[in-house]
């Protein structure tokens, strides 16, 4: 079996499962956060108190890491489908990975205020 070296896990089945598990985490996080802002608008005090809670920070970090895996697998799939030139595809995927890495570091910095 020929396995791709640029996908997230070492097999398509693994990627498939990670994509779904991360999707559920992201769906729950999105519904929670958007629902919260929609149903109870907050001022600065309420908003900063919310993200001051350890539980909210951990939940947000979980969503951020799920996003990293989810976006990597999704963008890997899209770039693999549409970019046929190996070098161009590698550069595009490396670019996506770099941006994703920045997002994760930035998010951690926001959440824990390093």
């Amino acid at each position: 079996m020929v396995t791709s070296v640029t996908n997230f896990g070492r097999s398509g089945a693994y990627d498939w499962m990670v994509q779904r598990v991360s999707a559920v985490v992201l769906a729950v996080y999105t519904l929670w956060l958007v629902g919260l802002i929609f149903f109870c608008p907050m001022d600065y005090a309420g908003w900063s108190a919310l993200f001051g809670k350890t539980s909210v920070r951990i939940f947000s970090l979980m969503a951020l890491l799920a996003l990293g895996a989810h976006a990597w697998i999704g963008l890997w799939t899209v770039t693999t489908d549409y970019i046929k030139n190996g070098l161009v595809r590698f550069i595009a995927q490396a670019g996506c990975g770099t941006v994703m890495f920045f997002y994760v570091v930035w998010g951690v910095q926001i959440l824990w205020g390093l």
């Binding site: 996003l67 976006a71 999704g74 963008l75 899209v78 996506c96 941006v99 997002y103």
Partner: peptide
């Protein structure tokens, strides 16, 4: 999905 990646 691609739009969301940029939107993040």
């Amino acid at each position: 999905g691609v739009i969301l990646f940029v939107a993040i």
